[in-house]
């Protein structure tokens, strides 16, 4: 495992921890899109079907369990926790799941490396992960007041994706036959979705003002 891959995983882990910190300690999920969180839970549930059939490493298994466990518990908190759910911006978080889920499922059925159940599910999870952040970005734009933890959460998620691209470039040059077009293109699309957010994030950081996305 190279440094970019490891740093990417750690950034991903940090983003989840920041979100859990906000929900668990401050008992607030203001500005967090439940739609995005539900899509991530679906992403991990469909991607990690190999958890009990293929063993890669202890690190791999542990991380998979962490991402599965954290994504489902975040959804649980926002939906059912009696204090946390009060801060959920339900009226603003109106993105429709199936606008993203159905096209991704169709695309995975059409474009995949192998037409087996697990491989199609894996591919579906890649496509869905690429667009799962959209409800969250829409919500950020509607929320005039983006708190620090929410901004950091989205920033860390974007950084994780950018580091994965560096990881693929590194692996391409160091490993024989390392070519994964589906993973790369969906990963690139996913990272590009953060470009706008990154721009405003760095602007607010440079000028030391509160993060706000233009309508």
């Amino acid at each position: 495992m190279n440094i970019f891959r490891f740093a990417g995983d750690m950034t991903h882990l940090a983003s989840v921890l920041v979100l859990l910190l906000k929900i668990h300690t401050i008992k607030s999920c203001a500005g967090i899109s439940l739609k995005t969180q539900e899509l991530y839970a679906l992403v991990f549930a469909t991607r990690y079907l190999d958890l009990f059939t293929d063993y890669i490493s202890l690190y791999n298994t542990l991380m998979k369990l962490i991402f599965l466990g954290s994504s489902f518990s975040i959804v649980w908190y926002i939906r059912y926790h009696k204090i946390v759910r009060r801060s959920y911006d339900k009226d603003q978080d109106t993105f429709r799941h199936y606008f993203l889920v159905l096209p991704c499922l169709l695309l995975a059925l059409l474009i995949n490396e192998k037409f087996t159940f697990r491989e199609v599910m894996w591919t579906f999870s890649l496509y869905l992960e690429a667009v799962a952040i959209l409800p969250q970005l829409v919500l950020l734009q509607r929320t005039r007041n983006i708190d620090n933890l929410t901004g950091q959460y989205v920033f860390l998620l974007g950084a994780y994706r950018a580091l994965y691209i560096l990881n693929w470039i590194y692996r391409y040059f160091t490993e024989p036959h390392y070519v994964h077009w589906i993973t790369w293109i969906s990963g690139l699309v996913q990272t590009l979705l953060y470009a706008d957010f990154f721009y405003y994030y760095f602007q607010s950081w440079k000028n030391n003002v509160k993060l706000e996305l233009p309508a």
Binding site: R5, D9, H12, D50, D54, I56, S57, N60, M63, K64, F67, E113, K114, E119, W122, Y164, N167, H177, T183
Partner: peptide, 10 residues
């Protein structure tokens, strides 16, 4: 020869 499809990334 077909490459084994290793899902070693997260």
């Amino acid at each position: 020869l077909e490459q084994p499809h290793m899902h070693d990334e997260l």
